[in-house]
């Protein structure tokens, strides 16, 4: 009887007498495989639930112990019933903060730059997250959820700080640049996203470069402060790219941070005008002008898709290893993506 095989949420029908590997490959699901005859072991996978017939799997390739622990050779095994498997070498079981639904109260709304506001939400109980993650806010009176990066460090867990850019006609903008007032209660869900500071044991204090476009600065503030507290001497450059001087905000806050941490510097970049004290152009290009080699550095990009793509290219041009490049893309508010 035909049965189905599921992997990472994808379900594939396995025809009668078809190996798991064949069913996957015919459905366009990639998994490593080489010999397809049970001798090389490349296609070994883990059966999570369900049952398989190992057929001609040789004991040399798939030992009795391995069978007992739920391993199977995809090129030989046939599912005996609907079966769920996991591919080897893919990340599983990584610790993560629980996703929670919370009620928050608006405690502060502040105009910080042209069409840009800082909004603070108070929580009744603390939220565990990693700096750089985002939350979803249910826009009051609507069924729409909008994503906003947190500017907080993980210690600042009872008041969430969001940076919001006005988008004409946007449902969240209409609220946050309109009737929003202190004391409003809103539903918040979070934390979400994989753009966050590395876990402490993964952070050796390597140099970091962060590029934020507009309100893409928000998660970088949390990430930068966390990373500097951990390694006060680390080299870190933060580029804040905006259109005009009127779009800049939190410059004093960043300058103060640079006073505390000698390895930290801030570069403000204006793309549509020149002004004293600021660089002109596009932040990724300014990075390329400034940094001769980013080999061994980690890179953090948050902003429009165009900025993030340009940043990735700039980082690689300066030979930053792609695995150390972290990216968070967002569309302007009310389309999608965090930080809007």
């Amino acid at each position: 009887m035909p049965a189905a095989i599921s992997v990472s949420g994808r379900r594939v029908e396995c025809a009668e007498d078809q190996s798991i590997l064949e069913a996957f490959l015919r459905a366009g699901v990639w998994m490593p495989n080489s010999c397809n005859q049970g001798t090389c072991g490349t296609c070994k996978l883990q059966v999570l639930c369900g049952d398989v017939d190992h057929r001609d799997s040789p004991l040399e390739t798939l030992t009795a112990d391995e069978r007992a622990s739920g391993l199977a050779l995809a090129c030989q095994a046939r599912p005996l019933e609907d079966t769920e498997v996991a591919l080897r070498g893919t990340e599983t079981g990584r610790a993560t903060h629980l996703l929670r639904d919370l009620t928050a109260t608006v405690v502060d709304v502040e105009d910080v730059a042209h069409d840009t506001r800082r909004v603070r939400f108070g929580l009744e109980e603390p939220l565990a997250f990693s700096a750089g993650q985002y939350v979803e806010v249910l826009v009051p009176g609507t069924s729409k959820r909008r994503q906003y990066s947190l500017a907080n460090t993980a210690q600042e867990d009872k008041v969430l700080e969001l940076h919001v850019r006005r988008v004409p006609g946007g449902v969240a903008s209409d609220w946050l640049f309109g009737p929003v007032s202190v004391g409003d209660r809103v539903e918040v869900r979070g934390p979400l996203g994989d753009f966050h500071v590395p876990d402490m044991d993964q952070d050796a204090g390597e140099p970091m470069v962060l590029i934020g476009g507009g309100t893409g600065l928000a998660p970088l503030l949390g990430i930068a402060r966390t990373a500097l507290e951990r390694h006060p001497d680390r080299v870190m450059v933060l580029y804040h790219g905006v259109r005009t001087e009127a779009d800049l905000y939190d410059t004093d806050r960043l300058t103060e941070l640079a006073g505390t941490y000698p390895g930290f510097s801030v570069v403000t970049v204006l793309s549509r005008e020149s002004a004293p004290g600021h660089r002109s152009g596009y932040a990724p290009d300014v990075f390329v002008e400034d940094i001769a080699s980013a080999r061994g550095w980690s890179g953090w990009l948050c902003g429009s898709p165009a900025l993030v793509e340009a940043g990735v290219k700039a980082f690689k041009r300066r030979r930053m290893a792609p695995r150390l490049i972290h990216r968070e893309k967002f569309e302007p508010a009310d389309r999608r993506g965090p930080g809007a």
Partner: peptide
């Protein structure tokens, strides 16, 4: 391209013994 099996490592009982190592 659809990831169909290929014969670069041969087939049968003389298929390459070092497939996994080489990969």
């Amino acid at each position: 391209r659809p990831p169909l099996p290929h014969l670069a490592f041969g087939a049968g009982n003389h298929a390459c013994a070092g497939i996994y190592y080489a990969n």
